[in-house]
Amino acid sequence: MRRQIRLPATLRFDRPYRRHPPGPLRCVAVGGDRRQNPNGLSKMHHQHEIVQFLSASPHRLRLLEHLRENPCSPSDITGALDLSRRSVQRNLSALADQNWVTKTDGSYQLTTSGALVALQYTTFLEVLKTIERCEPFLAHLPDSEHVPDLRWLTNAELVVVDSSRPYAPMMAYTSHLYECSTEAIQGTVPVLSRFHANVHTELLDRGVETELVLPRAAAERAVDLEAALHSLGCDLYIHDGTIEVGVTLTDHRGFVGAYDDHGRLRACVHGTNPELRDWAARLYERYRDRSCPLAGDLTGEHVP
């Protein structure tokens, strides 16, 4: 069953949403007209109108983005954006009505508000695009704490399962690890499979320092694989709870794997974005700090 997640604060690109206590609707007189005025409703309605205004014409955002670079005259804009002069003049007038552009000596330039709207609305659209692209990955994350800032996924590589490639995420993951040049690897392993064991065995043979966190249930189901890794010098930690996200850290790359309810890797994102890797490192450390090192005798006894 697919789980629903709450998206992180990334999408609230202007300010955090604050929930107000429930209360009765208030009415205020405006020019003889009585209108409902619940807390924040009128402002929210205005924000929706802003989005509708920008989406009403694809040229408006293009004009804002173009004017972010330099002030321009309508004729300059017409040539640069390949638009009719009438369209440019009409949309510039509409932007001026919003106080997002001003005209000085025949050239238009952005106001401070206009520059902020252009930047934040562009970011908003990029985040929506990332959500759509990464939906197969996001759909299998358990909650918002396991969702990285979506801006960090913009240029990340995404590999998902499909009917013709049921093991595509795992094959991409192991392929990158086989080919990577790194001195150390850390990771959480929700399910310890032969794929994981083989790639980490080779890396250990190369002298790569390896530290893995396993849920107790996965360790008990794969005692032989666990013993093989431990005998090669892999530092293993046992986590008494479930591990719902696979995280792997090399020297310069971070991997995040999303699993379904049956422990199958459904999607993997990875990249060299330092912020993505730092977030993955913090998530890994949270799991490791709540885990215990594996005892040397592999009898099932663990030391704190």
Rank of each mutant, 00 (worst) to 15 (best):
Leu214Thr: 02
Pro8Tyr: 00
Gln47His: 14
Tyr178Ala: 10
Gly296Lys: 13
Thr250Asp: 01
Arg266His: 03
Ser84Tyr: 06
Met171Trp: 11
Gly241Cys: 05
Arg264Pro: 00
Asp76Gly: 09
Gln52Gly: 13
Thr250Gln: 01
Glu211Ala: 09
Leu150Phe: 02
Ala118Leu: 07
Glu132Ser: 11
Ile77Asp: 04
Thr104His: 12
Leu92Gly: 05
Val208Trp: 02
His270Met: 03
Leu225Met: 14
Leu61Glu: 09
Phe137Glu: 02
Cys234Ile: 05
Cys292Arg: 15
Val117Pro: 03
Leu203Asn: 08
Arg221His: 12
Arg165Glu: 06
Thr123Asp: 13
Leu204Ser: 03
Gln47Val: 14
Gly31Leu: 12
His302Pro: 11
Arg62Trp: 06
Thr299His: 10
Asp149Lys: 02
Gln89Ser: 12
Leu249Lys: 02
Arg277Thr: 01
Gly254Asn: 00
Gly207Glu: 06
Asp260Arg: 08
Pro71Trp: 11
Ala184Pro: 05
Asp162Lys: 09
Gly207Thr: 08
Phe124Leu: 14
Glu285Leu: 10
Leu128Lys: 13
Arg286Tyr: 08
Ala222His: 06
Leu229Trp: 10
Asn273Ala: 07
Ile243Tyr: 02
Arg151Val: 10
Tyr259Lys: 02
Arg286Ile: 07
Asp297Glu: 10
Val245Met: 00
Pro215Ile: 01
Ala218Ser: 09
Gln98Asp: 06
Ser291Trp: 04
Ile131Leu: 03
His176Pro: 05
Leu232His: 06
Phe137Met: 02
Ala258Met: 03
Thr250Asn: 01
Ala281Glu: 04
Arg286Ser: 07
Asn273His: 06
Arg18Pro: 02
Ser175Asp: 07
Thr130Leu: 04
Met1Gly: 11
His176Val: 10
His46Asp: 10
Val117Trp: 06
Leu236Ser: 01
Gly296Val: 06
Phe53Arg: 11
Leu153Val: 04
Gly257Phe: 01
Ser113Thr: 10
Leu64Ala: 15
Val30Lys: 13
Ala258Arg: 00
Ala227Trp: 08
Val117Met: 08
Ala118Gln: 04
Asp240Lys: 09
Met170Asp: 03
Ser75Lys: 14
Val160Leu: 04
